[in-house]
Design a protein around this nucleic acid. Structure first.
Length: 519
RNA sequence: GGCGGGGUAGCUCAGCUUGGUAGAGCAAGCGGCUCAUAAUCGCUGUGUCGUGGGUUCAAAUCCCGCCUCCGCUACCA
């Protein structure tokens, strides 16, 4: 630990316009699994999530609900967002809100710095403005020059704004992404960023004067900082951006920055892959090592959305399947980086086949046999070389895959090992061996190998399914014999024979109960 | 419109760079087993590879056209 840099991972900070749905949870769970994995590799880790609370939309929503914007945010954060992450077993180290003073002060200082260095200038923002909506519209929001909401022609209005010299960094960004393929993944995302940068890049208006829910521009307090400029900075303000090197914030910053991975949905890729690093380049701060854009969850072939009634709350799923199955399903079923379709049928099928039948049932049969044939006690340590070899290969490929954010590949290889153990038990037929007292040693050997394989499976699956693997861990008596599951190291897990003989095994309720018929 | 990606077994997808009898998992059927959550293990079938042409001894794979779905084409987050 000590002064070594932490593996620093962030999720986007979510816009507090509404309650979280499974799309938000997908990103956060992925971040949680990756950071738990790195922790079990023995690395120092810092995992940040949070909420984005400024901007016109939040203001409008708050006003529509007749509450002050700050109160709106407070309510939503405390009653919706934080509880969801707690319920999903998200082990974030920090939670930042953009309305916190630690954030706002650092943002103002950062912006002032850019201004002092000549990267900010006064300019005119011009765009189609709808009087009815009281806001600027995007070209895509218009139907033949009319606002879609009010069906009235929009006016071209201009507003005096502060601009950031984004264009000055086009070349440098382009070179960066061309030279460093791992800086933006998957490849499809990187290609989009590169093709964007190969076109014309214009400067960015970074302040707004038509509403006041935001961080004031330090030298022009009639304007607030554009919400994206404000929001992106959270990743750095949360760990002490700009603080004196020997202050607490400065030390934290030195230990975390630059971020190792920013997880984002592909819809916000450009903000993270273009604007954000340009801001940092201007301030002469190191840029993040990797932007990873994952895909969308599709429901019935369409992007999930609340307006189309396809928005699903995490609790809709966890109440039937449990938190672990939720965490497992999305990472196992969908290649991270491509869109994936969610369906209750697929969710149920995988739950039953992979979790209940393959994994949960393997634990059941082992525990039952130890109980029946070995008086609840783990027998003498033994080693089946072929299993040990396969475990070593499993750990290697799972580690490579997960560190490369290929969750599907990683989980797959772990579950393949699980299947192999089911096969081992069936082939060695311990229930037959048990009938012959002369074959007691053989029986012990089979059951020991199976138990130690389950020990490894519990550790490997712990980052994905912390709750059920913990149950299995306790059931194997490993808690008292070799310590807590979270402390087990990935690098050690393949060492065969760690479960000590004599550990007391206890029967627990099934890990993944069968689903009710009518689901 | 321009650029990019996809359309392969009932379902989810791999294969296409480097042409040569079409693959995996799940679901389904059959058999084994009974330690286990009617579970597990083994075996089996499954396809005009979107469509029309072309190149070739040979094309899911290469070339051209077409149909269809999706993404990007900047300042709502």
């Amino acid at each position: 630990m000590g002064d070594k840099k932490s593996f620093y991972l962030t999720t986007p900070i979510y816009y507090v316009n509404d309650a979280p749905h499974i799309g938000h949870a997908y990103t956060t769970v992925a971040g949680d699994v990756l950071t738990r994995w790195h922790r079990q590799k023995g690395e120092a880790v810092w995992f940040l999530t949070g909420t984005d609370e400024h901007g016109q939309k939040v203001l409008n929503t708050a006003q529509a609900n007749k509450v002050a914007p700050q109160q709106w945010c407070d309510n939503l954060v405390e009653s919706s967002w934080k509880p969801v992450w707690r319920d999903l077993n998200i082990a974030n180290d920090d939670f930042i809100r953009t309305t916190e003073s630690r954030h706002m002060e650092r943002v103002q200082r950062f912006l002032q710095g850019l201004k002092d260095d000549g990267f900010i200038y006064a300019g005119k923002f011009e765009g189609p403005y709808c009087i009815g909506c009281e806001e600027f519209k995007l070209p895509g929001d218009l139907d033949e020059g009319k606002c879609r909401i009010h069906s009235k022609p929009v006016e071209m209005l201009s507003e005096e704004n502060w601009f950031f010299k984004l264009s000055a960094f086009r070349e440098e960004l382009l070179n960066h992404y061309k030279k460093n393929p791992e800086a933006c993944q998957p490849a499809s995302a990187r290609n989009e960023v590169i093709s964007f940068l190969e076109g014309e890049v214009r400067d960015l208006s970074i302040s707004r004067s038509t509403f006041d829910w935001g961080i004031p521009v330090p030298w022009d307090t009639k304007q607030v900082i554009y919400v994206w400029f404000d929001a992106l900075l959270n990743y750095a303000t949360a760990v002490g951006l700009g603080d004196d090197a020997d202050s607490e914030g400065g030390k934290k910053f030195a230990k975390t920055w630059p971020a190792d991975v920013h997880l984002v949905g592909k819809d916000i890729l450009r903000f993270h892959a273009v604007i954000w690093p340009a801001m940092l380049m201007a301030a002469k701060v190191a840029i993040p090592k990797k932007i990873f854009a994952h895909g969308w969850l599709l429901v019935g072939g369409e992007k999930m959305s609340k307006s189309k009634l396809t928005g699903i709350a995490p609790s809709d799923i966890t109440k039937d399947f449990g938190v672990d199955a939720f965490r497992y399903y999305f990472l196992r079923a969908i290649p991270f980086g491509t869109d994936g379709s969610f369906s209750w049928e697929d969710m149920s099928a995988r739950y039953t086949s992979e979790l209940a039948n393959d994994f949960g049932n393997l634990a059941s049969r082992l525990i039952a046999m130890i109980e029946k044939y070995c008086e609840n006690t783990i027998p003498a340590v033994a080693t089946e070389a072929s299993l040990a070899k396969q475990l070593a290969e499993t750990v290697k490929s799972a580690d490579e895959a997960i560190c490369a954010l290929d969750f599907q590949g990683g989980i797959n290889s772990i579950m393949d090992f699980c299947k192999r153990i089911n096969g081992y038990v069936t082939e060695t037929e311990p229930w037959k061996v048990a009938k012959d007292p002369a074959r007691k040693a053989e029986l012990d050997l089979i059951l020991y190998n199976t138990a130690d394989a389950l020990r490894a499976l519990a550790v490997l699956l712990h980052p994905v399914m912390p709750e059920s693997t913990e149950k299995l861990w306790e059931s194997l008596g490993a808690n008292t014999s070799i310590g807590s599951i979270a402390e087990q190291k990935i690098s050690e897990v393949a060492k065969w024979g760690q479960l000590p003989a004599g550990s007391k095994v206890t029967k627990t309720p099934v890990l993944f109960p069968r689903l009710e018929e009518n689901k």
